[in-house]
Computed example of a mutant assay.
Amino acid sequence: MSTFARTRGAAALTAGAVSLALLTACGGSTEKAADDKPAAGASAEAGKGAFPVALKNAWGNTEVKKKPLKVATVSDGDTSIALALGVVPVITPDVEDGGKVPEYKQRAIDKLGAGKLKTYDDTDGTAYEAIAAEAPDVILGVNTWEMDKDYDKLSPIAPVVTYTDKKQADTMTWQERLKTAAKALGLEAKAEEVIAASAKVTSDAAAAHPEFKGKTYTYTVVHPEQISFMSYGAQDPGVFEQLGFTKTDKAKNYAPDKNGVSLENLDQLDADVLLLTYPFGDRGVISPAELEGNKLFQSLNAVKNKHLAVIPSETNLASSLAYPDPLNAPWVVEKLTPILAKAVAGQ
């Protein structure tokens, strides 16, 4: 998981060839294996694993006795994992703001011919009864922060696939989450295909933009409580660095628990390219107009030379940067690359 942010839903914030590769990563064949006839809500894939599958988790052990055909999910990230593997969940939490499905997710749904996903209202948390009513063969929960309170109520319904250590709720990469789920679903070969396709999208974009290589960047998120220096030294290399950018020397001054930047220290944000996002709009600690009108901010080389870009939050790009998953990771590259190209060019 990206360490850019921790609050899902608040958007806390992380060309033709790219689009083609994106579709490869985001869908999954709907071709059915000869010996499996998936029930409504699931699609079987080639590359089945052997069953039964035994998986340890932070609360005990999970055994999946036979290839699951009905899969329930307890988070949006888990839904993305299922869809990327070519599996349409029988039920998933309703996380869409105003019913609008993100572009990357809709692409996968359309590719699988799934129509509208069946959802439960997650306003008050996981809806155990709604999940039980669908009689799932397995429940995916490798991308949730709620498993500590959910596990005991979910495990009597169906085998729960989740992380082996509670700390992994924050630390697992999307690739690791995908592989864990894929093992339980007998789709390990498909997971490797998805990971390879996503990596190719990124490497192709980097090769197409050699001007990115070696440019320093700062990624800044305006939260309600502070202006946050998110590309701090200990932050794992993310999509910016995979595309060729490097952290500034100021990154070493910041850490996950020490990343606030005061108005008096806005010079700390300067870099070859400065990237900002305002996921809370005017509810941030400072409004976009106030920050961008600040004299010290205006004196930054990145600002003066127009090497500044705002990452939009209304399109799910900022939240996808914060929370990469198998569907949005290649989509982020597709949408972010032209923004970065303009910033590097000073346009």
Rank of each mutant, 00 (worst) to 15 (best):
S262L: 07
A82E: 05
N143F: 07
A184L: 13
A42L: 09
L317W: 09
L317F: 12
G141I: 00
T123M: 01
L187T: 12
L321R: 08
K250I: 02
A10I: 10
I339E: 10
D257A: 10
A191N: 14
N301R: 06
T79S: 01
K335H: 13
P89Y: 00
K295H: 11
Y128A: 05
A50I: 09
E63M: 00
V74S: 08
E314N: 10
N316F: 11
R6M: 12
L85F: 15
A251H: 04
T315W: 02
N259C: 04
G99F: 07
K179H: 14
N305F: 03
A322W: 02
A191C: 06
E290V: 14
D170K: 13
A42N: 13
V71R: 00
A84N: 06
L336R: 01
N301G: 15
N328E: 10
T24G: 15
K100F: 08
G86P: 10
K167D: 15
L317H: 04
S198I: 02
L20S: 15
A271I: 00
G186S: 13
V161T: 04
D152T: 04
T180A: 15
D165N: 13
A251I: 03
F51H: 10
G113D: 05
G60T: 11
G141A: 15
A322Y: 10
P338G: 05
V87T: 13
Q175Y: 13
P338C: 07
E211G: 06
Y128T: 10
F245A: 13
S231A: 08
D122G: 09
T24Y: 06
Q106F: 01
E134N: 08
L117K: 11
V142H: 02
Q175G: 11
L20G: 15
G28D: 07
A130T: 13
G9K: 08
E146C: 02
A54Y: 04
S313E: 11
G28M: 01
A21F: 01
E176W: 11
T144L: 00
T180P: 14
V221W: 01
G244Y: 06
D94N: 15
A208L: 01
D267W: 03
N328S: 14
E264Q: 04
D257E: 09
N316W: 00
L22I: 00
K258T: 01
A271G: 06
M1C: 10
A127T: 12
H307R: 13
Q298G: 11
L112N: 02
L291E: 11
S228A: 12
T216W: 03
A50W: 05
A12G: 14
L69P: 04
V303M: 08
Q298P: 08
A197Y: 02
G77M: 00
A114C: 07
A42E: 12
P279Q: 05
P330W: 01
A42Q: 08
S287M: 06
I286H: 07
K149Y: 12
T126M: 02
A207C: 06
T246E: 15
S299F: 03
I227N: 07
K37C: 05
K250W: 03
V88Y: 03
L178I: 13
I131S: 08
V138F: 01
W145K: 11
I109F: 04
K342W: 02
T216E: 09
T246Y: 01
H223Y: 12
K67V: 07
K111Y: 01
L336G: 05
D137V: 07
L178W: 09
K153I: 01
K111G: 12
R177V: 12
P237T: 03
D270Y: 04
